[in-house]
Design a protein around this nucleic acid. Structure first.
Length: 795
RNA sequence: GGUCCUGUAGUCUAGUGGUUACGACGCCUCGUUUACACCGAGGAAAUCACCAGUUCGAUUCUGGUCAGGACCACCA
């Protein structure tokens, strides 16, 4: 279907949009040209998860990214604006488990991955369709080898780059495996990073339990929420200022039931007014305990298994799940008269963000990527990246300050990038980077390098009889997504291009993933290249519901962008996104009424264009233009200038507000009314030159206006511009020619005068077209008298 | 607990050390004006959160209070 003609458009409609965007989607008109001589502007777009349709936040923020992309093209950049789809990790696994009613570790790895792939294959292309309907000008909507094609984070090409970077980090000695206490999610059976932990206030009991002092035989009472961990207690502490207990310093406590000798010491961590003031420090209580054990050099006492049950250390509790163990030990303590009392409290409990399970802290081997030693470097690197808005940099700085352990990068899950290693006794085989390796079901390459105690001692071929065992763990999803800009710019694949295009021009993303995606990307980019990975980063806030609350399924206040696209269309949604506020500075409240209302502006633009285009367009600029016309031209140049300045700082909000005001309040309501007569010139009241001046100016203003709003509402502007003989997608952004005209305030005065006249006529019940006598044109508006007189029929 | 942000008509917001505080959505009245009834003209609606201070003057600056939000944090 062809793109509609302006004369056939009465109201802008979703029907037209569907015609236009389906042509755009297939056209590849914004395909990235890697041989370009233009400067490259690359946008490291956040790959959304494919297994759920896009939400309001996506719709609005991708619209913004599209504003940026379209504007940068107008500025003469070759824009790389790829569509990526994130398909790795827990959300896919959880989706597969839910959809097919399976559990990963029950069906087995190979089978489970097939389920995940099945889910991904069946997942509708709804997300991609929604982006196309929004008119997002991605470099391509197709998968392929060329730069700018749609990329998938689980594709072998992507995963092979992830693995290649790991192989090199490993060789550089930046990766190490260590026995450490980890945040353990017993439900998903995996370690999780600090960044993936939420805290929830959950009801719990404070249990006051009797302990004995070895040296004196005295009985003390210790309060704890985790009595099942008595067997994991490494020290009992009290506050140094707590006079009740100073006599216990250096003495030994005997743990109830287990009868272990535990040292007692003063430590500021203990709070006098909390519980009984005595605290049992266990190596699996929570993060504070872990930190304490490290600090005091205590040996950890692990009492919890990876499946969430108690181990042999827990004696009679062995094999029982943690919560049941707590019940059981409380029973036992009661029986033995060791439980003094129970006080119900709410307890701030660490919760796995993804599964909702309570986090346990257990010791196991994991891979870590060194990051602590780079904190200072990262601060320096971050300073070289421009933040929009600048305040958002603080989120990153705060996070860098609070990073306290190296990054655990290994996970015990299935649908993710495998860690490319093989083992045989004390040997480690490291494959050649560049290919995708699946160690848990493949043998190592013949050429894979073999390391012993960190030293290269040959290749796999040299050890023919060795029985290699493939690594079974996978990478944390952030280990994949933190190289998005490298993959996008063809790191390790097209060195020439990479050298030319790195660092990426812009990273747009939400504030909530600054401490994950942005931080990790800066870290990885720095480790790979030693440079900042972005020139600019644009951090956005959130989309809220009409009343300013978070949208959530449980509140039932979600607004589905697919529905908005169907009812009001992309242009209205995009224009609303720009006009509602600056999403980099504040949350936007989403109102259907307001989005609907933006259709009026779209229609207004069409009607203004139709009106102007009924006149013949003068060829070239007339010898002279009238003062009123010149005034409007100068005003437009002023708007052009301020629009450009704002757009350059990713501010599309102030300009669209200003342009809206211009369209409705100045251009349509006043200027058009004033020059109508002169443009028609039916009664030949004006000279040909004056009439030509009007028509010239009308076209000038219309064309300029279209260019300025094109990045925000590309469809309407494209349709109108096409009939003006302009292919707007290929136009340059206009350069403002600022005049010395200091009479711009005259616009206000003219508007005030017009309003006065219209009110006069209404008060006197005179139709607007009829003559009005006795109204003097003020001295400072005499220059515009011919139009004022003709418009109002003043006599 | 710490840090930061916000508080302007029913809703969302702009803006300012100084006469009647911008606008949008919604609401009301009138009007079929020949680009547009997805229109035009007009109207109602805000003690600019509260308290104190600086000032001739504060919605605007400062401090505090209250409310909401975000991020961070070692409560056994």
């Amino acid at each position: 279907m062809p793109i509609p003609k302006l004369k056939d458009i009465k109201n802008w409609s979703v029907e037209f949009e569907n015609q236009i965007t389906s042509i755009w989607k297939e056209s590849d008109q914004f395909a990235f040209n890697e041989n370009t001589k233009k400067k490259i502007y690359s946008i490291d777009t956040p790959p959304p998860y494919i297994n759920t349709p896009i939400h309001m936040g996506h719709a609005v923020t991708y619209s913004y990214m599209d504003f940026f992309a379209r504007y940068k093209r107008m500025q003469g950049f070759e824009v790389l604006f790829p569509l990526g789809l994130d398909r790795n990790g827990l959300p896919i696994e959880m989706g597969a488990e839910k959809k097919f009613g399976i559990t990963s570790f029950v069906v087995g790895r190979e089978k489970f991955i097939e389920y995940c792939e099945k889910l991904l294959a069946e997942t509708s292309v709804e997300s991609i369709d929604s982006f196309a309907k929004l008119g997002i000008s991605f470099s391509s909507y197709k998968q392929g080898k060329s730069i700018g094609s749609v990329y998938l984070t689980d594709a072998p090409e992507y995963r092979s780059v992830t693995q290649a970077t790991f192989i090199e980090l490993y060789k550089k000695g930046l990766v190490y495996e260590d026995n450490r206490i980890n945040n353990w999610d017993p439900k998903l059976r995996t370690t999780v990073a600090d960044a993936e932990i939420d805290y929830k206030e959950l009801p719990s009991n404070f249990n006051d339990i009797k302990w004995k002092i070895k040296e004196t035989g005295e009985v003390v009472v210790i309060g704890t929420t985790r009595p099942e961990l008595i067997c994991a207690c490494g020290m009992v502490i009290f506050n140094p200022k707590d006079e009740r207990y100073t006599h216990l310093e250096g003495k030994t406590a005997i743990s109830p039931i287990f009868e272990e000798e535990i040292p007692i010491s003063a430590h500021p961590l203990a709070q006098i007014d909390k519980g009984t003031g005595l605290v049992m420090m266990c190596s699996a209580g929570d993060l504070s305990d872990i930190q304490f054990f490290r600090e005091m050099g205590l040996k950890t006492k692990i009492s919890i298994n990876q499946n969430g049950t108690m181990n042999e250390r827990a004696g009679f509790l062995q094999g029982i799940k943690i919560k049941e163990a707590r019940q059981k030990i409380i029973e036992t303590l009661k029986e033995k008269g060791l439980l003094v009392k129970q006080v119900p409290i709410t307890h701030r409990t660490p919760i796995s963000e993804r599964s909702g399970a309570e986090i346990e802290f257990i010791e196991m081997k994991e891979f870590y990527l060194k990051q602590l030693e780079f904190k200072e470097d990262l601060r320096t690197i971050a300073k070289k990246i421009n933040f929009f808005p600048p305040e958002s940099k603080k989120i990153l700085d705060d996070w860098i300050d609070s990073v306290s352990i190296d990054w655990p990068i290994s996970r015990r899950r299935y649908y993710a990038t495998p860690i490319p290693l093989w083992y045989a006794e004390d040997l480690v085989a490291l494959p050649i980077p560049g290919e995708y390796h699946v160690p848990w079901k493949e043998s190592p390459q013949e050429e894979a390098e073999v390391f012993k105690a960190g030293k290269r001692i040959g290749i796999v071929k040299d050890f023919p009889k060795t029985d290699w065992k493939g690594e079974e763990r996978v990478f944390d999803t952030w280990f994949d997504s933190s190289i998005s800009e490298l993959v996008l710019l063809k790191y390790k694949e097209n060195n020439e291009f990479f050298k030319r295009a790195y660092p990426a021009s812009l990273r747009p993303q939400g504030k909530e993933i600054v401490r994950t995606w942005l931080y990790y990307t800066i870290l990885r980019g720095y480790l790979e290249t030693g440079k900042p990975c972005f020139e600019n980063t644009w951090i956005h806030q959130h989309i809220l519901d009409e009343k300013g609350r978070k949208m959530s399924k449980s509140l039932g206040n979600t607004i589905d962008p697919q529905e908005l696209l169907r009812d009001y269309g992309a242009e209205a949604l995009r224009l609303w996104s720009a006009e509602e506020g600056d999403i980099s500075r504040q949350d936007l409240s989403c109102s259907k009424d307001k989005i609907k209302a933006e259709l009026k502006t779209i229609t207004k633009i069409i009607n203004v264009a139709k009106f102007i285009m009924q006149f013949e367009k003068p060829k070239g600029k007339p010898k002279s233009v009238t003062p009123l016309d010149q005034l409007m031209i100068d005003y437009m140049e002023e708007i052009t200038k301020s629009t450009e300045q704002c757009y350059d700082n990713y501010d599309f909000w102030h300009p669209t507000l200003k342009l809206r005001h211009f369209l409705w309040e100045v251009f349509a309501s006043h200027y058009l009314e004033l020059v109508k007569n002169r443009a028609y010139n039916l009664e030949k009241k004006f000279s040909d030159l004056e009439s030509e001046s009007a028509r010239y100016t009308l076209y000038y203003l219309l064309e300029r206006y279209l260019l300025l709003v094109y990045p925000v509402i590309p469809q309407v502007t494209t349709v109108i511009a096409k009939e003006l003989g302009i292919e707007i997608a290929k136009e340059s952004f206009p350069k403002a020619i600022l005049s010395k005209n200091d009479g711009l305030e005259n616009i206000e005065k003219i508007m005030t005068f017009n309003k006065e006249v219209w009110k006069d006529k209404k008060d006197k019940n005179i139709p607007l077209r009829e003559k009005l006598s006795g109204k003097e044109i003020p001295e400072n508006l005499k220059a515009y008298a011919i139009d004022l007189q003709a418009c109002h029929n003043l006599v």
